[in-house]
């Protein structure tokens, strides 16, 4: 066997082995995906990601807590006084500056994810130095717009995606 044909044969051989190896790697990674993906939210969980809340019975000053995606959601029917409180603030001085208008679709109704942005506790309503919410875990104070005013939390309470389906129904998610 000449040297040339020998090296040619060798390269074909290694090509086959490389192709086999590549197939094997593809097979292993393709098998891996279902094993990872099964931990993602399942179809029944995803279907519950959108809820409708009836707010017709919510009187002024009252608030309601509903469960959305496993987290509490605060819906507060704010009084005029509370709305004014939320607006009479020098936004620039806040730890997380945001205007009250940016945080509501209808100033009367404030919709918040009731999870403290510090470490995930649930703040208590109508408590704290700013008459909004107070997180008992590490003492974060939120105002009537759900903005952080004092304490270790870095951000304002989160606003979930929502729309007013009609005057009495909010569609969340």
């Amino acid at each position: 066997m000449s040297k040339k044909s020998k090296s040619k044969k060798k390269s074909r051989r290694s090509f086959i082995h490389q192709a086999s190896g590549a197939m094997g790697i593809v097979a292993v990674s393709a098998a891996g995906w279902p094993l990872v993906d099964q931990m993602n939210p399942s179809k029944d969980v995803e279907a519950l990601a959108t809820i409708e809340v009836d707010i017709s019975s919510l009187g002024e000053g009252e608030s309601k807590t509903v469960l959305w995606r496993g987290k509490p959601l605060f819906i507060k029917h704010r009084s005029q006084e509370e709305i004014d409180d939320a607006n009479n603030v020098n936004v620039k001085d806040l730890p997380d500056p945001e205007n009250d208008e940016e945080r509501v679709k209808n100033p009367k109704y404030l919709v918040l994810v009731g999870v403290c942005t510090h470490l995930g506790c649930v703040p208590a309503s109508d408590k704290g130095e700013y008459k909004g919410w107070f997180c008992p875990c590490h003492g974060s104070h939120y105002d009537t717009s759900g903005r952080i005013r004092k304490g270790p939390a870095p951000k304002n309470l989160e606003i979930p995606p929502y729309t007013f389906k009609d005057e009495r129904t909010i569609l969340i998610g």
Binding site: P34, Q38, N40, S42, K43, D44
Partner: peptide
Amino acid sequence: EHIMRNVNHGWLI
């Protein structure tokens, strides 16, 4: 049945 219908790739696994 939840595994077969709802879990991602559950039927396959």
